[in-house]
């Protein structure tokens, strides 16, 4: 059986690139990938060192995994005091798709 890194990389590579994920998307991930995404979401942000510690991966594997998640639009990467940090890239909640005249009618009522 492939190791954790290989399994996760294989799953992420098959996934579509997104402009951020929705909380509902989390439910569609494999338990292993969901655990990582949940962990980063709960913490708000995590450094590469934190992720390496929590996942028991080699630093090079963790960096590659996280970079792939950034490339797929699941995470955002940024630097804090020279160290790479990651946070969940949450997709914007889209407005309701209803015919424009409904909003216009509502606007005229509530102004």
């Amino acid at each position: 059986m492939a190791n954790l890194f290989d399994r996760l990389q294989a799953e992420i590579e098959t996934r579509q690139r997104l402009e951020g994920i929705t909380p509902a998307d989390l439910l569609d991930l494999s338990p292993e990938l969901r655990r990582i995404m949940n962990m980063i979401l709960r913490q708000g942000e995590m450094s590469l060192t934190d992720v390496v510690f929590e996942l028991d991966l080699k630093p090079s594997e963790a960096r590659e995994l996280l970079s792939t998640l950034v490339g797929k639009g699941y995470l955002k990467a940024f630097e804090v005091e020279g160290e790479q940090h990651y946070k969940t890239f949450l997709a914007r909640k889209r407005g309701r798709e209803v015919p424009l005249n409904i909003w216009e009618a509502l606007d005229s009522k509530v102004r």
Partner: peptide, 15 residues
């Protein structure tokens, strides 16, 4: 009411 309608119409940044 107008502000509730706006947030429903435009959505918002979940992040």
């Amino acid at each position: 009411a107008g502000e509730i309608a706006r947030v429903l119409r435009e959505g918002y940044d979940v992040g």
